[in-house]
Computed example of a mutant assay.
Amino acid sequence: MTPVRSLARAMLSGIFVVSGYRNFRNPDRLAPTAQPVTDKVAPILQKAHPRIPTDTETLIRLNSAVQVTAGLMLATGRFSRPAALVLAGTLVPVTIAGHPFWNNDDPVARNNNQVHVLKNLGLFGGLLLAAADTGGKPGLRWRTGHRIGHSRRSVRRAVRTARREARIAVRSASTARRLPG
């Protein structure tokens, strides 16, 4: 991994590790803001799996733990592509719950929340780039196509070899019939 990639991943993941840690330790400060979103998500989670906790503070803690874990994975380069996608997924509820500028009547608060939404969109874009970054190595699509091409060539070679051997066997059999015996 190049130094630029390492530095960029560490810088991108920093906000998730720090804010995830803070929010994990103190979820009650976010609970009133997150409550409207968690109330809408709770029934879906209950349908998906009845044992998933649906109280607001626990959901904040879960999201925070995921952010810390995936942020550290991104920063260290371990499973960085899936970690970037997971972090992008955690941004969606955070942005909707934390910065609903569409509900603000105060122009200053509305502007402040719009700036935060744009910042989160920028982070989302950076995470998508990190998720697509193969680190200079061929991506899965190329490797799959290359493997398929290699397999096709191998099959063609095997078919040509089998035809050649069949022709040789036919010639040998016809020569063997002609010889007195």
Rank of each mutant, 00 (worst) to 15 (best):
S80Q: 15
S80V: 08
S80G: 14
R81S: 09
P82Y: 08
P82W: 06
P82V: 11
P82S: 11
A83M: 13
A84I: 03
A84S: 05
A84E: 03
A84W: 06
L85K: 00
L85Y: 03
V86F: 06
V86R: 07
L87P: 09
A88Y: 07
A88C: 07
A88K: 10
G89W: 03
G89N: 12
G89M: 07
T90R: 00
T90D: 01
T90K: 00
L91E: 02
L91I: 03
L91N: 01
L91R: 00
P93Q: 04
V94N: 07
V94G: 13
T95A: 01
I96G: 01
I96L: 00
I96P: 04
I96W: 06
A97Y: 15
A97P: 15
A97D: 14
G98V: 12
W102H: 05
W102S: 00
N104M: 12
N104C: 13
N104L: 13
D105V: 10
D106C: 08
D106P: 13
D106A: 03
V108G: 07
A109Q: 07
R110S: 06
R110N: 11
R110A: 12
N111V: 15
N113F: 13
N113C: 11
Q114Y: 10
H116L: 14
H116A: 14
H116S: 15
V117L: 05
V117Q: 02
V117P: 08
V117K: 04
